[in-house]
Design a protein around this nucleic acid. Structure first.
Lengths: 226, 226
DNA sequence: TTCATACTTCGATCATAAGCAAACTATCTT
DNA sequence: AAGATAGTTTGCTTATGATCGAAGTATGAA
């Protein structure tokens, strides 16, 4: 009975189309203002405001006031993982999903999940790190080996400051399209940033898709081979 | 936008209190009739019937007609895993969770998740199997080593017929109370059955709690030590 | 100061869907 | 055959909550 109440509370938050669209938009990882989310959800500003208040009260999103703006973001990597999970179930359950279009294909290949790389390439990346002994995985938790520490430092990632933050360095997150884990946590975010700043790939506008350049893909694959 | 629609569809199914209670009850793993679920959810039979039709249409539960009864169950281990995941988020988000009562404590210790063992003891079991090289884990998937095959056969588990079923033998499932993985899949179900038939533990009535006898707990821990 | 922007709160409307009683169908019992 | 039990369907009531316009608050710009 108590368990059911908990379920229902979260479910009803996610269950409204406008709120679901907002959450889906926030899965892109960038914080968005109330107006942007209203547009995204296709509702008027007052309506969006009410929805965002509920999401915020419910703990699914966080707010950061900045001047006259209010930036909303997913509260937590766990919330992001939960949404990915639900999407995954929806994908397998969906009435009969028509053959995946090109947009879908790109999403499966590489996309942003909250703030790290997901999709086939994200899964391949974690696989490589694990295979080379740089990271050890244990359920949702994961940890870096000493070999990993020197390797990631060599990529120019600042592990010291990362280690001091509250956020765990290594996490895994279940990928809904591949149904396997990809790398999340501070390191996952840093790796995505690394990929983007090196120009291997760039984010597609208004979507979660990450497009690798042909060159970038080659570089990325070389990195995975070690 | 499309992603949002998917989310909303599942969310709204889970978001109704009556339906959420039904789903929570079904997390116990045993199939239940419409009347039982009506009672569980605290609604009249016609209401329950309507809810179950929605859950069934939505693909979250499956129905099996048996004479004049209709047995409802969760459609899938994935649905079960999704619900566990949502409960986990609810637990961390919950307004201010009062200190966990004894019932909660028992749930955290050992409970049924769909049809396998979850909670601290479930996680400990998988840990032990992995540590002893009986099972290798890779994200949600997992596989048995040859050492594992002979070990589990030695416990009296019929791996041959299990291998022939559609259901994967080894799976992992994220545990909401421990936030780590426990063993699911056909093997997970078989292990739970093994624990129950040996009298090491028994299911508590009308709940997901599994109570180990003092003796059973010793035996179980001995098994984990190998 | 005055205006504009970003957002919230209020108030009213409206639609959806949750709820149940009563009637109906199907299966089992005797 | 005549109950009895399990469940669905129908029809109706009711309540919740999603929606937006209008007015209010807070911040920034001129």
């Amino acid at each position: 009975m108590k368990a059911g109440t908990d379920l229902a509370q979260i479910g009803s938050l996610v269950g409204d189309p406008a709120r679901a669209n907002m959450l889906a938009a926030l899965m892109g990882g960038t914080a968005l203002t109330a107006s942007e989310l209203a547009l995204e959800a296709g509702v008027a500003l007052p309506t969006a405001s009410a929805h965002l208040a509920k999401l915020s009260d419910g703990g699914l999103v966080s707010v950061a006031r900045q001047g006259r703006h209010r930036y909303y973001a997913l509260a937590d990597h766990r919330v992001a993982a939960m949404l990915e999970n639900i999407m995954g179930v929806a994908a397998t359950l969906g009435p009969k999903r028509v053959l995946p279009g090109p947009r879908d294909k790109a999403m499966r290949d590489a996309r942003v999940c909250y703030d790290h790389l997901a999709g086939e390439m994200g899964v391949a990346m974690l696989d490589s790190f694990v295979g080379r002994g740089l990271i050890r995985v244990d359920g949702e938790r994961a940890e870096m080996s000493s070999a990993g520490a020197s390797y990631f430092a060599g990529l120019g990632i600042d592990l010291d400051t990362m280690g001091r933050k509250r956020r765990p360095v290594c996490r895994t997150c279940l990928d809904w399209s591949v149904r396997r884990s990809h790398l999340a946590g501070g390191l996952g975010a840093a790796m995505l940033e690394c990929i983007l700043t090196r120009g291997w790939a760039r984010r597609e506008k208004d979507s979660r898709v990450i497009r690798f350049t042909p060159m970038g893909r080659r570089e990325f694959e070389m990195m995975l081979r070690g």
